[in-house]
Design a protein around this nucleic acid. Structure first.
Length: 793
DNA sequence: GAGTTTGAAACT
DNA sequence: CAGTTTCAAACTC
């Protein structure tokens, strides 16, 4: 599903050189390439013409991490795509190049260099880039440090961008402006600037604040079709933002020198497996001359082809450093999981994550949570957080991974500012599409218990001592985005992270914590304009949340799973801390269960974590879906271990295969199995089950319809009439009334037009007229009601 | 709702 | 790894 959602983005990306990349199976341990856009000093003037297999090209199973960091250097110009959106994401494996054609919207042009040593391609922004952009007929997009925002759209769910507002440069020295970065004549818009990263989304994002047309460079991948980076404002300065796009690439498409161990794999990576060093293309916005250390913002998005996805979100870094390194933490993902890595390192500058264009909330390091969603796919989000004292959890009862614990380095100073009201795009609030997601420090409709970070230290990612790329972010602004070498210690941890696991920063590893976020939760956030995920202090636990978001448990479609609330458990002896308990096995807290002596809750977090560890020690895949993808030629879904039924014939729900509505496979050890394709017993049962389901659906529909009819009838027969602000008979809003109202509004508009009033003024007049009309209607209704009462009607 | 059956999980 | 026990869900009455 995810893939389809993403693939709707047209792309003509030739798989050419990259070749088989497109068909990289999710099981493939594909290395992760990281594309870093940074303004390094390297190789200015090098023009990057990205071939199809460029690093920006994402293919299924690949991971793409995007980090944006600012370094003192010329501007990175994202040249708006010309009228023809190629919808192809192209970069180059060549050592030098300049342009990266991203899918759809923009062609990213910037000089870059590829460092064979670290397998990184560094795009250097040049002043010419601006002119080039202008020549292209589009305003050059310049990242402006102040108020810059980053929009990240969801995967597979186009139209729900996440707005991340970059911190204001603030104390930037007067001349510290991104040096020549700003080409003459470039508009210096005071409005916040946006970067839009669309993953699998359509290029339909619209400027949240500024009215400037969005120029969205798009990175397109097979799995993650499109990654769009757009800036609301045509001008951007050397913002301290790094956009690192790391993707797993097929080893075939990698030259030996670019091979690096994959950071993230769709399957449990064995350290012995041939790994290819992740290539890193760095597209960074260098600061012109300012040596001031600005916090780098990094967002790494690494999609994999597998249905399951893991989102790694790194938030906040202690302090920014001009020479900071970004290393994406290696994340080991269970088979079939995709990884979306969104790493954001923010130092002193707060990052704003908005739910709506009209509101922006400053999120300080560790507070913001990047969110990505994949329709119907399992999704884990691992959120590195600043090692701030406050640790928060977000519980989503019913979801596989139902809470996030935010460990921030600073006190919960998250300001839940609701931002201004400049929603020019008009997509604020509950708009269904293109709705920026709110990820802010505001109140969250989820419980965020504060738990000591120590409880999860054992799973804290530890950089390999041998991996030079792994740099401790502690005490420095350096951010480790994606180590070129695999981090065995970490991978298993991430892969096996049970829901709700919070990774606290290990001593000396920097103030970055990690939290596993369920994909559903992310989806929820995107779907709900009101849900915010932040690390505001004093966040009261909200156990009342009954969101039953579920992952595609046992291979069931997400929609199906989500529509079916999890059954409450009835555990009595296991304390719900063993896999006997479905809640625990699904990585969920018990909620509204009938269990006794339950420890599967926040109150017993220590025990719970210990139990999780025990389970993982016993079976590292204990918390992975049992229903996964089968071998080639077999059914897409099959039990990972197979059943062992003896008496049920595998035709009862005792059988896990049958329960998951899948056929038993060759790995099953069942006796007398009747759960195979041609089994007449199975067909009969399935037929009966289908018939029963149809009946249930029909009954449900009938009930719904009847209820609606009854409600409508009640409204018609007994209109509530009241005065003083009470309800009025809806019948007063008749066709005639509507027509009259419209005429009034039109007349008002005509007047404004004749008076040659400016549009805003005209709109105001029309609205005022509308208000008057409403008042008249209400008044008339009230009067009619009074008359009716006097006449005893 | 109580009791039985069943098979996965846990244990030895 | 195999056998046994424990456990909770599924099932039957």
């Amino acid at each position: 599903m995810d893939t389809e959602a993403i693939e709707d983005v047209p792309h003509s990306q030739p798989d050419g050189g990259g070749g088989g990349d497109a068909s990289v199976p999710m099981e493939t341990d594909t290395p992760t390439d990281s594309l870093r856009l940074c303004s390094g000093d390297g190789a200015p003037g090098q023009t990057l013409t990205a071939p199809a297999e460029s690093a920006l090209s994402l293919s299924p199973g690949r991971q793409l991490s995007i980090s944006i960091s600012g370094t003192p250097s010329p501007l990175l110009t994202l040249k708006p795509a010309l009228a023809t959106s190629t919808a192809t994401t192209r970069t180059t494996d060549s050592v030098t190049g300049t342009s990266i054609t991203t899918s759809g919207l923009q062609k990213l042009t910037a000089p870059f260099t590829i460092s064979a040593a670290n397998h990184q391609i560094i795009l250097n922004k040049v002043a010419q880039a601006t002119e080039a952009a202008k020549a292209a007929g589009a305003a050059p997009q310049v990242l402006k440090q102040d108020g810059q925002k980053l929009l990240v759209t969801t995967i597979g769910k186009p139209g729900q961008p996440i707005v991340l507002q970059l911190p204001h440069a603030g104390a930037k020295p007067g001349g510290a402006k991104p040096g020549g970065a700003q080409a003459p004549g470039e508009p210096k818009s005071p409005t916040p600037q946006f970067k839009v990263v669309t993953i699998g989304g359509r290029a339909e994002q619209k400027p949240a604040v500024s009215g400037a047309a969005n120029q969205l460079p798009t990175l397109q991948a097979q799995q993650l079709k499109t990654v769009q980076i757009a800036k609301k404002n045509p001008t951007f300065s050397a913002a301290p933002i790094k956009l690192i796009i790391a993707k797993t690439v097929n080893s075939k498409g990698l030259s030996p020198q670019t091979s690096v161990p994959s950071v993230i794999t769709g399957r449990v990576l064995t350290q012995t497996s041939p790994v290819v060093p992740p290539r890193t293309i760095t597209l960074s916005e260098p600061h012109s001359t300012s040596l001031q250390s600005l916090p780098g913002k990094k967002i790494a998005i690494s999609p994999l082809k597998s249905p399951s996805k893991v989102t790694v979100v790194s938030v906040a870094s202690p302090t920014s450093n001009a020479s900071q390194k970004s290393v994406t933490l290696p994340v080991n993902v269970a088979l079939g999981q995709q990884i979306l890595t969104v790493q954001q390192s923010a130092s002193g500058s707060p990052v704003k994550v908005q739910t709506s264009q009209t509101s922006a909330q400053a999120v300080k390091p560790g507070q913001s949570v990047a969110v990505g969603s994949v329709g119907g796919s399992q999704f884990k989000a691992i959120i590195p957080l600043a090692a701030q004292p406050n640790v928060q959890q977000i519980q989503v009862p019913g979801s596989r991974f139902h809470y996030v614990r935010l460990v921030t380095a600073s006190t919960a100073s998250s300001t839940g500012g609701t931002g201004g009201t400049g929603g020019a795009a008009g997509t604020s609030g509950a708009s269904t599409s293109s709705k920026p997601m709110v990820v802010s420090a505001g109140p969250v409709r989820m419980s965020v218990p504060i738990v000591p970070a120590q409880t999860v230290k054992q799973v804290a990612p530890k950089p390999l001592g041998s991996a030079p790329q792994v740099v401790s972010a502690a005490q420095t602004q350096q951010r480790l985005i994606m180590p070129a070498t695999p981090l065995p210690q970490i991978q298993p941890n991430f892969a096996n992270l049970p829901p709700g696991t919070v990774l606290a920063p290990a001593p000396g590893t920097g103030n970055v914590g990690y939290a596993v976020v369920p994909a559903q939760y992310v989806t929820q956030l995107q779907q709900s304009p009101f849900v915010t995920l932040a690390s505001s202090s004093g966040f009261p636990a909200a156990p009342g949340i009954q969101t039953q978001a579920r992952l595609p448990v046992n291979g069931l479609p997400a929609a199906e799973a989500s529509s079916r609330p999890r059954k409450p458990c009835n555990c009595t002896k296991s304390q719900c801390l063993k896999l006997y308990c479905d809640c625990f096995a699904n990585g969920e807290f018990c909620n509204n269960c009938n269990c006794n002596n339950c420890f599967n809750n926040l109150e017993h977090e220590t025990e719970r974590m210990k139990a999780i560890k025990t389970c993982l020690d016993r079976n590292p895949e204990a918390f992975k879906p049992k229903i996964g993808k089968g071998k080639e030629g077999e059914s897409d879904r099959r039990h990972s271990k197979g059943c062992n039924c003896k008496r049920s014939g595998c035709l009862k729900n005792y059988c896990e295969c049958y329960e998951a509505k899948i056929m038993c496979s060759s790995i099953c050890k069942c006796v007398g199995c009747k759960n195979f394709e041609e089994s007449p017993e199975r067909k009969t049962l399935m037929h009966l089950a289908d018939a029963a389901e149809v009946r249930v659906q029909q009954q449900t529909a009938a009930k719904t319809k009847l209820s609606s009819q009854i409600s409508d009838l009640l409204m018609r027969t007994a209109p509530v009439v009241s005065s003083g602000g009470g309800r009025l008979p809806y019948t007063f809003v008749t066709k005639e009334v509507l027509e009259a109202t419209c005429e009034c509004l039109l007349e008002q508009a005509k007047r404004a037009e004749q008076a040659q009033l400016p549009a805003p003024e005209a709109e105001r007049l029309v609205l005022e007229e509308f208000g008057h009309c409403l008042m008249r209607i209400i008044s008339s209704a009230a009067k009619a009601k009074a008359d009716c009462s006097s006449m005893s009607c």
